[in-house]
């Protein structure tokens, strides 16, 4: 910026010079941002340091001070030994339950949403828009209204209490937002491409698998991110539709931390909390812009 002014023969500009980094305005700007950053970062920091202290140190010191002696024992305990009721095999069971719920839910819900979005974008038929409207309405119905009807549906299907029942529930509730996402993406693909493929003799499935899917990797990633975080973070459906041996990680975490029996081990609690938050955090930090794009797209158009 200053290079131009130093050139020989350059006309001296009128008005104030461009402000430097330390202008009062910038100090205020960055100051405000830093203060807010503290609010957002503090809990993460406290979680980490607490989980690395032993109980004696927690009782003595304050929550913000870094651990004097780093110990990983709380992590081990949270993973393998923490108790929920009579079970004392830690969060690991919940973790694997969540994995077993997540993977089929993810695959099924994304596939169905992509296919439905494709129908709505490229192969409309009379009434398809109305069904889509009804589906979108579902995004706004409070879950509580549908909790019991779904209990009945699952019971009729013989899935109540099983992992597959929960998979079905996740697939159902993920449909509106994901279908919307896919539909909007596919609608924006050039229509002539689709026509060209039909002239070339590709049919419904041919166009879907050979033309549309290869062009749509980003939206699959976005939808996948939404699904992974949504399913992993779910609590309500886990409590309602599974039996204790199938509880997902969030439910088990809550049971460990909020159990009334025994002495509270805060370091173990925080280690367990961190462990539960780890999967979505990893997804978040690695997907970065796509995550932002996903929630912005899903939200703005919703």
């Amino acid at each position: 910026m200053t290079a131009a002014a130093n050139l020989p023969g350059a006309v001296t500009p009128r008005g104030t010079k461009p402000k430097t980094v330390f202008a009062p305005r910038n100090i205020m700007l960055y100051g405000t941002l830093l203060i807010f950053s503290m609010y957002y970062l503090l809990p993460l920091y406290v979680m980490i340091v607490t989980s690395l202290k032993d109980m004696a140190e927690i009782r003595m010191g304050n929550v913000f001070s870094p651990p004097v002696e780093i110990t990983f024992a709380p992590w081990v305990k949270a993973w393998a030994e923490a108790c929920t009721g009579i079970n004392c095999d830690g969060l690991s069971r919940g973790f694997w339950n969540s994995v077993r719920i997540l993977i089929p839910s993810l695959i099924i819900s994304v596939s169905i949403a992509a296919l439905t979005g494709y129908v709505l974008a490229c192969w409309r038929f009379k009434g398809s828009e109305i069904f889509f409207g009804i589906l979108l309405l579902g995004a706004f119905i409070p879950y509580q209204v549908l909790l019991y009807p779904l209990v009945i549906i699952l019971r009729e299907l013989g899935l109540f209490g099983s992992l597959w029942g929960l998979v079905l529930v996740h697939t159902i509730f993920a449909m509106p937002i994901n279908v919307l996402l896919f539909r909007n993406y596919f609608v924006a693909l050039p229509e002539e491409l689709f026509k060209a493929a039909r002239v070339d003799g590709a049919g419904f499935w041919g166009i879907f698998f050979r033309i549309v899917i290869p062009m749509s990797l980003p939206i699959f990633v976005v939808s996948g991110i939404i699904q992974v975080t949504g399913i992993w973070n779910d609590f309500l459906f886990g409590v309602v539709y599974t039996r204790p041996e199938n509880y997902p990680m969030t439910v088990q975490l809550n049971n460990i931390v909020n159990s009334v029996q025994g002495v509270q081990e805060y370091n173990v609690n925080m280690a367990a909390t961190l462990l539960t938050g780890l999967v979505p955090l990893v997804v978040y930090f690695f997907s970065g812009r796509l995550f932002v794009r996903g929630i912005a797209a899903g939200a703005v158009k919703g």
């Binding site: 957002y40 973070n233 969030t250 539960t276 938050g277 979505p280 955090l281 930090f285 995550f291 932002v292």
Partner: peptide
């Protein structure tokens, strides 16, 4: 500012 949104309400 956004990372908490990735976490569940339980966490």
């Amino acid at each position: 500012f956004l990372y908490p949104f990735a976490l569940s309400f339980i966490v």
